[in-house]
Amino acid sequence: MTMAGRTASRTGVAGAHPPPAARRDLGWIGIPLVAVAGLAAFWLLPDDLALLTRIAASALFVLSLDLVLGYGGIATLGQAAMYGTGAYAAGIAAVNWISDPFALLAVGGLAGGLIALVTGALILHAHGLTLLMLTIAVGQIVQEIANKARDWTGGSDGLSGIDPAPVLGLFRFDLYGRTAFLFALAVLVVALMVARRIVRSPFGLACRGVKEDPLRVSALGGSPKSYLVALYAVAGVFAGVAGALTAVTSGIVGLDSAGFPWSAEALVMLVLGGTGRLYGAVIGTAVFMGIHHILASSDPFHWMGFIGLFLIGIVLFLPGGIASGAGRLSALLSALARPGRDGGRA
């Protein structure tokens, strides 16, 4: 029967690759690498600290999307709803009541998590296109509320006048953006560690199960929707912190922080770096915003054409993103390096 053929060929595959669990155990290296790369950029590019700060905060936002999409399989075009909520919450708090940067991040995270929890519970029963539309709609509503609540948010002029106190009471946010960048980098690194913890926790394991086969999870007694809602809320906290981080380090919050284009851009950056790997979010964001910065200074549209072609290429030729391309390449190389062993096993 066909079973026999399948069995044989699968044994061959199993022999050729190292088990993925063993590969994933090296994942922690990515986090110190991010820290080192960030510090290196700090020394090498002292004139681009504003850009680097934006990259760090955006990477945190894209990381939140990776939690949702890469570990829960939720395709969303509305992640900016949580980012924008966090940014406005922190911004409003900063203008009116609080100035400690960590407290502002907490406010942003709380706001992002809450809005994600509420909207997630409302919309995550849906799938596919319907869910996509619902996430877009949530983003539009948040943006519209921010637009209309001018007294609080400044409406289309944006919210400015955010003036956070020194970090830990020691480090002022200086004119050159040094404190801002190091603060953002530190937050990103800590967030990566927390995210890594979460995806390797029992909860993360269950979410991966839901992503692959929700019905099988319910056959194990789990409720797929409650995992997804919880994951959405957790990712909302990350997105909210990212928004707050942007508000704190840049001093302004604009309407576009909750907009559809920002959600879509985050998706593009994530896919660029590869989903379901955490540090893929950082790679994708750095590559996207870095090249954007270089190309856009000549003409923003060249940049769009380039990234558009890139996206099309990824969908057609490389469905797992840059990181998967690298992974596949190394698997191919290692397979080529020991043909004898594989031949012997097959």
Partner: peptide
């Protein structure tokens, strides 16, 4: 899942 310990977010499996 059987022991209902899947909502532990910060414990390592």
């Amino acid at each position: 899942q059987r022991d209902r310990r899947t909502f532990r977010l910060f414990a390592s499996v």
